[in-house]
Amino acid sequence: MTHETIPTDPNDAAQPGTARERLLDAAEALIYAGGIHATGVDAIVRQSGTARKSFYTHFESKDALIAAALERRDERWMNWFIAGTQRRGKGARRRLLGMFDVLREWFASADFHGCAFLNAAGEIESADDPIRVVARKHKARLLGFVRAECVAFVVEAEIDARRAAPLARQWLVLLDGAIAVALVSGEADAALDARAVGKTLLDAAVKPAATKRPPSRRTTT
């Protein structure tokens, strides 16, 4: 699989190639399955099949390697998620709800271990750490995609354009919430629960506000 190919699964890493690519593959696989702090450089080098010298040739530190691995995963995961969402239909509403169907397929896979970016951010204390920066950029990128679909939805539903931004933020909470619940519970149907909540949000967005009666001017005598 080339780097330009959109994978069918967000966990699929590139086939072993250069020493750098093998190190990135090994780092991503090991930290996704076991965490950053539990994964040492020796384990990464051993799994990559490279020499330890190769690690120091390409990366100045373990954190630099992990940040680079996460950046590559961000590109692959977003390509997978966007493509899966777009296959769900032509209408924005169908695509928004279809995001949860895409997630459910991921949740049901044998090597699902939650969101790699939330997992990584949870292990890093400093907000300025390169790993946290990559995680933050990933969520901003995901929010940007969701917001574009929400903008399309408000146009499609002919409602106030100002509804798109808050709806996008709420949608991101639903997506990340579904990922977290699926990880902890082991239930892929967490995606369907989030989808039901999302449907309620969309229905509420298009429901006309109830007309308020003006207060009565009548007075009692």
Rank of each mutant, 00 (worst) to 15 (best):
E156S: 10
A190K: 03
A178E: 04
A191Q: 01
D160V: 05
V181Y: 02
F112D: 03
R147T: 09
L175F: 10
G177K: 01
K199S: 12
E158N: 13
A204I: 05
K137H: 14
R104F: 07
V134R: 10
G186D: 00
K207H: 14
R162D: 12
A190I: 04
R104T: 12
L174A: 07
H138F: 15
N119L: 08
K207Y: 13
A190R: 01
L172Y: 04
F153N: 01
K137R: 15
I159K: 10
D111P: 00
E149M: 15
L201G: 06
R141P: 05
P208F: 03
L175Y: 04
D203Y: 08
V206D: 07
V146F: 09
E156C: 10
G198S: 11
K137V: 00
H138W: 12
V155L: 13
R163S: 09
E187C: 01
W106Y: 13
A135L: 06
R132Q: 13
P166Q: 12
V146R: 03
A196K: 04
I124N: 03
V133S: 07
L172S: 11
G186N: 00
G177E: 00
V173Q: 07
I131G: 04
D111R: 13
V181P: 13
I159G: 04
C150R: 02
G122C: 02
K212H: 03
C150F: 11
A135G: 15
E125R: 14
A190C: 08
